[in-house]
Design a protein around this nucleic acid. Sequence first.
DNA 1: AGTATACGAAACCGAGGAGTATCGGAAATG
DNA 2: CATTTCCGATACTCCTCGGTTTCGTATACT
Lengths: 215, 215
Amino acid sequence: MTVEAPSPDAVAPARLGRPRDASRDADILEATLEVLAEHGYDGMTIDMVAAHAGAGKATVYRRWPSKADLVIDAVACMKMRDIDLENLPDTGSLRGDLVALVRAPELPEAERKMRVMGGVISLMSREPELAQAVYSAILAPRITINRALLQRAKERGEIRQDADVDKLAALAPAMTAFRTLAERKPVDRAFLLSLIDDVVLPAAGVATPTVHDGP
Amino acid sequence: MTVEAPSPDAVAPARLGRPRDASRDADILEATLEVLAEHGYDGMTIDMVAAHAGAGKATVYRRWPSKADLVIDAVACMKMRDIDLENLPDTGSLRGDLVALVRAPELPEAERKMRVMGGVISLMSREPELAQAVYSAILAPRITINRALLQRAKERGEIRQDADVDKLAALAPAMTAFRTLAERKPVDRAFLLSLIDDVVLPAAGVATPTVHDGP
DNA sequence: AGTATACGAAACCGAGGAGTATCGGAAATG
DNA sequence: CATTTCCGATACTCCTCGGTTTCGTATACT
């Protein structure tokens, strides 16, 4: 994304003048997400973001050419703080794996992701790049993890062999988004556990749906 | 909602001058929904709505005091064209009832409802009246119908006695909204039938999940 | 006819926000 | 120390859009 200035020595950019403070980038992106989650794309102004980041407007526009570019970048940069597919939970049972993904300290962050998505949803139709960023940063991580866990359970013979893994993998994210954005109710641990025990596991055809309350 | 002019004879308003053309109301509300579905709340301008309805801006503002009021009214007025709870389908089986609700000619209308909701989602947090209108006009009808059908199936002993009827009733609307707004894929008959057969019915614990293709 | 209002079209007003430019100061290079 | 660029702050331009008003015409009641 970043255009490199023409320099014969690519290793040492060695530009003139005061160098950019890289820490401002992260502050601005974080402020963007915060304002976005609270006010949505159109309710967010660059001044809000700058003030929230303790930065000047010029500092924002020196890094991103427009509001749209800033938002796309901010959304795309949410991707990282998630679980990598390498070390998934492996408790032996599908329920154990799913419950292991419900970690209380991450719930507010997950809920904010949903609110960010809500704040840009009406723009996604006209900005495919934004739609792509939302999908790969917010939706894909959870769906992909769920799919992997379900597929493993299927191969283990723990769930129905004709289970629709793709739909089941999207089930929890869909219900969570729905609850946050449409019903405007909180997504707490109880809701997620009930979702696992009363919807996902029964739909997957797990033999013994267990009682709530996890490890 | 309408304020009545002080008139001794309530039966005959008998106002002076040219009377309002009531047909403009419906045209403007319909135009509002159309523009809303395509551009979202902030992308929609009153001029767009007026042009789309073949009306003048003044005609709009003579009826609604502000853009927000117009949108709330337009959303609230979607409620009607839905099934009433009085004559639900009653085919004898839960699957039959659910499949009977999947009627091809109504799919585009249902999809537009979802896009309208998407265009307004970021505003629902700051406008409780709008959130209420969205819920009762778009979400509540489907959810309530599903809940009634599920409850009946439960009393019939067709589904698990410990099935979470409330969550199951919201399942299809949530997945449909998710598919339309987040995944941006079409909601066609095949998707809805697969949703019934591969997710809802298994989750409800129906004994024999049947093959796709309905009556 | 006379009056009062609704209609579509278009001009108009004012607020707010995206984006730019300027300023004094700070931090790097040479 | 000179130069160059970054920084936060702030003033400024330009344009869009919500909302109002005006105008010529149409349609009702009296």
